[in-house]
Design a protein around this nucleic acid. Structure first.
Lengths: 197, 197
DNA sequence: GTGCGAAGATGAACTAGTTCATCAAATGCG
DNA sequence: CGCATTTGATGAACTAGTTCATCTTCGCAC
């Protein structure tokens, strides 16, 4: 069942968690089904939940003044997603987070998370680890955006997430990689000798 | 003295800290003077310290295959700096972190930080907050890099860090903003009616 | 002081990536 | 099924930003 997958995931994050703690932790989350194209975060509203994806796919994106959307993060099974800025500072979100497929998630609301962290040192540790990894992830992404050409970012993506590529529409990947969808299409077809479909 | 400033900073981060805790925490750090141009992190070596800047300025940067450097982060008084990826995953750093001025810092080594976090729930909370804010910072920076033009990023920087601009050489700011130093120079002189010196 | 390296300004030529427009194929859905 | 919407390919014209090269200015070392 979903809860087993989720507890295994949490156990991998922090092996010290006891069975009781895993049970308490997961009980604090709500299992929820989300339909394709449904939004779980929208600009103007505070992102009140942290989401763990059991099954499905999401993307978080912003729309710039010119109306172009930019994917900040995506998430498939076993990943987490929310608008961090909005969630931690309790300010209105700048992002959209939308389901790309019919999905199943565990969600945790802000107040419950605070309670968990206060009552158990190890829960605090779990969220600290989570935040550190998120910081490292965003920093790696920033480095990639600043130091690599469009084609290099595409190759890097293919190497890192080979399965994700088939699964998401190309315009989502283009907007994640910081290039126009037309250019991604050109890279894929002409670009270099490599032409994995 | 430096330690007062540092304790005030920590108190602002987490007001619940008692005087005893502040004392214990700051005692775990080492006060250190660092000369201009000295490196505190270098590629190939694990970043073993987290640095709080008491006085001075630093920048963290990577060098791409073409030899161009890209500033990932800078830090002046009351900011923190290290190579997060290297520090938390204990892998060789990809970055340089260098002093831009003669500086004074408090540094905390990895093992001591682990001990602090284990022994006191509130210290764990402090580092959790720190990591969350770092994640949010890097995410905002990524959004800016993806959604704004060079000129907009420059204006944003001016608005956000007006004092920093005078203090750092222009090529550092250009590499932080993700543009060539020549282009930053052109923006500053021709760009728009605004021409703050 | 003067000589020299580092920082900034400026222009001309160039290019990586965008925009716009059209066409083709795939997918969903009533 | 069959139509409509979404997704992807491709080419031509364009532009934001780069690269390279030259010149000036400024700080500071001896």
């Amino acid at each position: 069942m979903e809860i087993v997958q989720f507890q295994q995931h949490l156990s991998r994050q922090l092996p010290e968690l006891t069975a009781d703690e895993l049970a308490e932790l997961t009980a604090a989350f709500t299992l929820r089904n989300i339909k394709k194209r449904q939004f779980i975060v929208q600009p103007g509203f505070v992102a009140d939940h942290r989401i763990y994806v059991v099954q499905g796919a999401f993307r978080a994106y912003v729309i710039d003044p010119a109306g172009i959307d930019h994917t900040i993060q995506f998430a498939i099974e076993d990943w987490w997603i929310t608008d961090v800025n909005s969630f931690i500072y309790r300010t209105p979100a700048q992002m959209f987070v939308v389901a790309l497929e019919d999905s199943t998630v565990f969600q945790l609301d802000y107040a419950t998370e605070q309670r968990l962290k206060q009552t158990n040192h190890r829960f605090e540790t779990l969220f600290r680890l989570h935040a550190e990894r998120a910081a490292a992830y965003h920093q790696r992404r920033l480095i990639s955006a600043l130091t690599r050409t469009a084609e290099e970012r595409y190759e890097e993506f293919l190497a890192k997430y080979p399965t994700v590529f088939q699964r998401l529409p190309q315009y989502v990947i283009a907007s994640y990689l910081g290039m126009s969808k037309e250019f991604l299409s050109k890279i894929r077809n002409h670009g270099g000798p490599k032409k994995l479909n």
